[in-house]
């Protein structure tokens, strides 16, 4: 396997530390993932002042929650409404907000998603079982720079009395990319 061979050479040359590799892997396998983003969304649903600040300057707001870092240096939050559904892609590579959502899923990096999301987002949404009303426009964000986008899905009906922790469970990873909707309670 090529990666094993590279790791061996680089370790022998004194350029990488296998323990550091373990630490990087543990970070993205166990510590940083879509529950961070779900926390932000649930807070935005629950706290109007937080929502306003998030839409104004997402980088500052998520940094305060500790969600700043590699591939999340410049964050913008975009909010789904009855009028607009936002969806995020990176047609040129695989740009994705790591501190909030972790490592991108396989389909996000696939040729099919990268090729189709900009031309036929509604057919892509159908692959995820999502159908939008004709009255909703789709806005696809192609991440061509170092700005990373977080979709704030619509808060489901019937969640009025729920607290932040309970709301978090309704926020799926796909709903924050825009290929899914938040779960119904």
């Amino acid at each position: 396997m090529r990666v094993r061979a590279l790791e061996t050479i680089l370790t022998e040359k004194g350029l990488i530390d296998p323990a550091a590799l373990d630490e990087i892997i543990d970070t993205y396998e166990n510590r940083i993932g879509p529950r961070n983003g779900a926390h932000v969304v649930a807070r935005a649903w629950s706290d109007p002042a937080f929502r306003t600040a998030l839409l104004e300057d997402a980088t500052a707001v998520v940094s305060e929650l500790g969600y700043y870092g590699r591939q999340g240096e410049h964050m913008v939050a975009v909010e789904n409404t009855d009028a607009v559904h936002n969806m995020v892609v990176c047609t040129l590579c695989s740009c994705y907000p790591w501190p909030l959502l972790g490592i991108p899923p396989g389909w996000y990096k696939s040729d099919a998603y990268r090729a189709r999301a900009v031309r036929e987002p509604r057919k892509v949404l159908a692959d995820f079982g999502v159908t939008l009303p004709e009255t909703t426009a789709v806005r696809v964000w192609d991440s061509t720079a170092e700005v990373r986008y977080l979709v704030i899905p619509q808060r489901p009906a019937g969640t009025e009395g729920m607290d932040e922790a309970a709301l978090m469970d309704l926020v799926t990873r796909d709903s924050m990319i825009g290929t899914g909707l938040a779960l119904n309670p």
Binding site: E120, V138, R139, V140, S143
Partner: peptide, 10 residues
Amino acid sequence: EHPRDEVVLD
């Protein structure tokens, strides 16, 4: 697909 759909790029 839809007359009001948009794509946004940086």
